[in-house]
């Protein structure tokens, strides 16, 4: 089976800054990949290139069989990018819920506006997903009234209601108070066990160890190591990976 996400020789420049250096990564369907690395190594940029929140400078991105060349200038490319975005769901560190909509409105917004789904059908789907993340009881609240953990669970439900094939998470628990991290991680675990393909940028080593099929280490815009978690954490090959793990250990993660 071909991988559902296939990144080939991806380069990204911010002005003169070379942030991604010929990165290639294949993710088979249903796999959970954790992306780790020091601050500024390019993790977010890589993740955001997958759904074109950042425009890659060079290389090829393929998601769910939709292939987009970074240097393609054709008119059809816009439609391809749109299709890639429909195939991926994204969860942000800062939640980014729409503050002027209730929880339920947040969750049905995508299906109704983007997919043109019948409102009643979208509500049904939204309620299922809210139930799944344990947030149905707040369906009519505005995001302002929710705790960070609750917001993030709603954000996950919002992404899932678009019925994506791949979920991208960019440090989903980094903006949370420590006591709220667990509820979000357990929702993510549930999503993983339901068979979702996930790429997760995270500093939560416990989550990586328990849930990830693979851990990929990034350093200065390159993928330097890629292994199963138990292997990577116990026998890191690259000294930079070792240093990273030591740092997480000393921070008590």
């Amino acid at each position: 089976m071909p991988p559902i996400v296939k990144i080939t020789n991806l380069d990204k420049y911010f002005g003169r800054l070379h942030v991604l250096k010929s990165v290639s990564l294949d993710v088979p369907e249903r796999q959970v990949v954790c992306l780790i690395g020091r601050s500024g190594s390019g993790k977010s940029t890589l993740l955001r290139c997958i759904n074109f929140l950042e425009e890659p400078s060079r290389g090829i991105i393929e998601v769910g069989g939709i292939q987009v060349d970074a240097e393609d200038k054709s008119k059809e490319r816009r439609q391809l990018v749109h299709n890639v975005r429909l195939t991926t769901g994204m969860v942000f560190q800062e939640f980014n819920l729409f503050p002027h909509m209730t929880v339920l409105e947040n969750v049905i917004e995508g299906p109704v506006t983007v997919k043109g789904m019948e409102r009643s059908q979208a509500i049904e789907l939204a309620r299922q997903n809210l139930e799944n993340v344990g947030m149905l009881f707040k369906a009519d609240e505005y995001p302002l009234r929710l705790s960070g953990g609750q917001k993030q669970r709603v954000a996950i439900a919002r992404a899932l209601t678009m019925q994506p094939r791949v979920m991208l998470f960019d440090e989903p628990t980094s903006a949370l108070d420590p006591e709220l991290i667990g509820e979000v991680l357990s929702v993510m675990k549930k999503v993983a066990y339901e068979g979702m393909t996930m790429i997760v940028v995270t500093h939560e080593m416990g989550f990586a160890r328990e849930v990830a099929d693979r851990v990929v280490v990034m350093s200065e815009g390159k993928l330097i190591e890629d292994a199963a978690p138990e292997e990577l954490f116990s026998h890191p090959k690259d000294p930079r990976t070792q240093a990273l793990i030591d740092r997480y250990r000393s921070e008590g993660a």
């Binding site: 002027h100 995508g110 678009m162």
Partner: peptide
């Protein structure tokens, strides 16, 4: 209206016009 709002809308697959109408303008008008 923060950049994150536009990004969330784009990630859902909204067009620039939809992002403006559904996400940015309602907040800006308020």
């Amino acid at each position: 209206v923060g950049k994150g709002q536009r990004e969330a809308a784009m990630a859902l697959g909204m067009t620039p016009g939809q992002t403006m109408r559904r996400v940015v303008l309602p907040q800006a008008l308020r």
